[in-house]
Each structure stands twice: as C-alpha cells, then as structure tokens.
Design a protein around this nucleic acid. Structure first.
Lengths: 135, 135
DNA sequence: GCTTGACTTAGAGTTAACTCGAAGTGATAT
DNA sequence: ATATCACTTCGAGTTAACTCTAAGTCAAGC
C-alpha cells in the first residue's frame, strides 16, 4: 500500500509542510518519488515516520534523528550505534517520566491546598494585612 | 531566610538572567527589592519559584503562568480560577505521562528488534538487494 | 577615594522547530 | 486544451523561551 504526503500527514497529525521539512533535514532517507517528483510513502515508510514522531515527541533533537537516519541508510554495520543511541534515549525518557510524576505530585498538593477550607479562610483573613505570597 | 538572585538561580538550575526574565514577564510578582534595587527572595518566594519551575517543566506557557501569577496577587477571590487552571493542567500532565509511556514502549520494541540475532542476520542479507527500510 | 564585583535595565540576538508564501510543474476532470 | 488541484522547491518569516550585551549603579574592601 502506498500513500501521498497528505495522507501520511493526516495519519500522524503533522502537516505536509512539516513532512517535507523532515525530508529536507534528512529524517526520511527512504522515501521514493513518482516520475513527476511526488513523494511516495510505503507501509515501511509509515513505520519509519512513526519512529521519527516517537523520537521527536520524546524530545530527541532533529540533528540526532538525522544521525540515526543516516546510520539506518548504511545498513547492518551501524546496528551497534543505533542500539546505543536508542538505549541512551530510553534512559532519558524514563527520567522525563519520573520528573513528570514528581511535578504531578506538586500540582496535586497545590490543588489539595486550594481544596482545604482552612487554607481559604486563612487567605481571606490575610487579605488586608500582608500581601498573600506563594499561594 | 533571604536569598540573592544567584543563590536562587543555583538552587533551581536556572540562570540569574532567566529569573530576571521571569520577573519581567510577570511570573514573580511578590519579589521585594533592597534600597539599591536588588531582588530579595524569601523562603515563600522559593516555594513560588518551585511552582513556576514545575509548571514550566510540565509545558505550561509563560503567558498562562503569568495569568496564574496575576490571580495570585489578587488573593482569595481568584482561588476558583487558579484551582481550575491547575486541575486542567494536571490532566494535561497525566496525558503527557501516558504518551511518554507509549513512546517508551515503541523504543523498547525497537531495541528488542536490534537485540534479536535473527533480525541482524536478515538485515545483513538484505544489504545488497534492497535498501534496508524502516530499521 | 578608588577598584572590584554583583547587581540593575533595556533591548538585541539566538535557537529549534516549524510555518508560510511565491512561483512553478504535472496529472486529471470537463 | 484548459482549468483545477495537489504537488514541487526555495527561502523567508514566526514563535517561544531564553541568552547575551552594553551601559550603568551600588556597597564593600584596600
């Protein structure tokens, strides 16, 4: 099955502009063209785009994804490099998740603070005396 | 206990530049000054900066944090607005975590793919025939 | 009293990742 | 065959969040 750039864009919630930009930046090294120059995406390309989106969404810079893409074009001899990059990135993602969970905790504490009528009463009383700080 | 801008910057892994930038953008509405105009951070301000960092790290734009900060200066009467903003943002953060966990799964699958000798062998055989795609 | 160093401001510059516009080409519908 | 439409390229513009520079102020130590 083949897909046009707009079909792929729709599937991944990107714009055709963005896909061309990724292509220009060397992130889509496998995409073939029609005789008239239009990009043709195969199912294998869709998997590739999915990986690129995954790496992008987890904060990998375009430059690094480009390196990964170049390694992929070189075939089996770059497997170790690619595996290492993904393994390091994996660790990065787990750190992001941990950080988010900590931050979520702080937000929950803040919401809890607002849910406690005692705190609200205190804030109301403070009104005219001291400027309420850090609430 | 009071702190200088550099002490606070160090504590939160920010630069003094960035803290001044946040102040200019209205994110630090409670910070007092010395007679000579230097910022003085109290412990309450440290808690406030911690919240700002938390919101920033979870993707809240500066504009929205500014709104929140302005509400905070108005005192108890804006508690509902603030609680609602945090509650919506909380949901956003849980979505981020879910998305990251999905992406982590894909990365793990990819690493698993590279760890399977069968796949490596396949890739090596493909070398001269078809350009390796989506690996 | 002068130097040093940390601070101040306003505003310009940078970076990453898009995002858009202009000008043009090719395939399909009438 | 001509209008439409999706595509192409190149390059300029945008946005958010810093990041830095220049010019200046202030307090403490020699």
């Amino acid at each position: 099955m083949n897909y046009t750039i707009n079909e792929v864009a729709q599937k991944f919630g990107l714009s055709a502009h963005t896909l061309r930009y990724y292509d220009k930046e060397g992130l889509l090294p496998f995409i073939e063209r029609t005789t008239s120059g239009n990009r043709v995406f195969t199912d294998a390309d869709l998997n590739w785009v999915a990986l690129i989106c995954c790496l992008k969404d987890t904060g990998m810079p375009i430059k690094e994804m480009k390196t990964y893409s170049q390694w992929a074009t070189l075939g089996a001899e770059t497997i170790d490099e690619r595996k290492q990059m993904l393994t390091e990135h994996r660790l990065e993602v787990t750190r992001q998740i941990e950080k988010l969970q900590q931050n979520l905790k702080l937000i929950d504490e803040k919401i809890e603070f607002y849910n406690d009528p005692d705190n609200i009463e205190l804030m109301e009383k403070m009104k005219e005396r001291v400027r309420s700080r850090a609430n």
